[in-house]
Amino acid sequence: MENKYNLKSPAVKRLMKEAAELRDPTEHYHAQPLEDNLFEWHFSVRGPPDSDFDGGVYHGRIVLPPEYPMKPPSIILLTPNGRFEVGKKICLSISGHHPETWQPSWSIRTALIAIIGFMPTKGEGAIGSLDYTPEERKALAKKSQDFCCEACGCSMRSALLALTPNSNPSAEDHKAKELAQQINFKEESSSSRQASESGGAESEPSTPTQEDTSTSAGQEASEEPRAEQAEASPATGIDGPQPPAAPIVGRPLSPRQRRAQQHSQQGQRDGREPASRPVFAPTPRQPQDGSRAGSVALIVVLTLALAALIFRRIYLAHEYKFDYEL
């Protein structure tokens, strides 16, 4: 395997070091890479004592990215256990589902201890989590001893060292519980953040409030006289609001035009436009007329100057001719 990979790669160096550290199994966990793939590891962990998983030995896969340890691994359980789904990537802050919470200082050993400590916790609907009854989990724990991995050929009966009275699992259990509490806190933080976001989305009223109703009613009321005035206004070809047209002599006004006219007259008496429509000042045309007058004056001046040049040219030509004849 050393000839297959670039030994200068940080990921290869790290994995080779961890493989040497985890070469010998312990009473609680063991992990080694496959013979033909350094980035896929198979592991075995013992169920935590005094839990529904006590007496069980569980097998799984760890798939590491080429950017390891800068990116987290993916963890997949292969033994039915009642806590994690079989053959599906589990969702932990130490797994590939949460790269934002991964720390490069963590290792495969850390992941194994985290799995042991995290098994007795509640799934709470996380990806790849299950919430079996204690009876079902205890039955699966006894059955897990018969599991044998087809990929690596590891048997759960001989995967780990046997527990002895002289063994002291309290240190490993203490590390596992501390790490599980840390990971659980991060999971609860992300869950609470998602719950708050979903709660905020659900808290938005689906029915219009009193303020929205009054606002929409005011808009509808303001649009009605505007539409009436638009119909009463003649088509002048100029965009923008137009004042209501004067009634045509000999043609009776419709009720809608009469209401629009009364509404406009009432606004003029109050010294302002109707409240339903904004006030627009007429477009000033003086700057345009001034610029046009300036253009005309400039053209006249240029014309006079050109005529003066022409007359001067003619005068000079005649004067030269007179001198020549003399």
Score class of each variant (00 low, 15 high):
M1F: 05
E2S: 13
K13G: 03
R14L: 09
A19C: 09
A20S: 12
E21Q: 08
E21A: 11
E27Y: 00
Y29E: 06
L34V: 01
D52L: 02
D54C: 04
V57C: 05
G60H: 09
L77D: 04
L78F: 02
L78N: 08
R83K: 15
K88V: 15
I90G: 02
C91M: 01
L92E: 04
S93F: 07
G96R: 01
W102P: 08
Q103N: 12
S105E: 13
S105R: 15
S107N: 14
A114N: 15
F118G: 13
R137I: 14
D146A: 12
A151M: 10
C152E: 03
G153L: 13
S158K: 12
A162Q: 02
P169C: 12
A180I: 01
E187W: 02
S192D: 10
R193D: 00
Q194R: 04
E197H: 00
S198P: 00
G200C: 09
G200F: 02
G218C: 05
E220I: 13
E220T: 15
E224L: 10
E228M: 03
A235L: 15
I248P: 06
V249S: 13
P252I: 02
R256V: 03
R256H: 01
R258L: 09
Q261L: 14
S264C: 15
G267P: 14
G267T: 12
R272P: 02
P274C: 13
V279R: 13
F280K: 14
I299L: 05
T303M: 07
L304D: 05
I310C: 06
R312C: 07
Y315I: 06
A317C: 09
H318S: 03
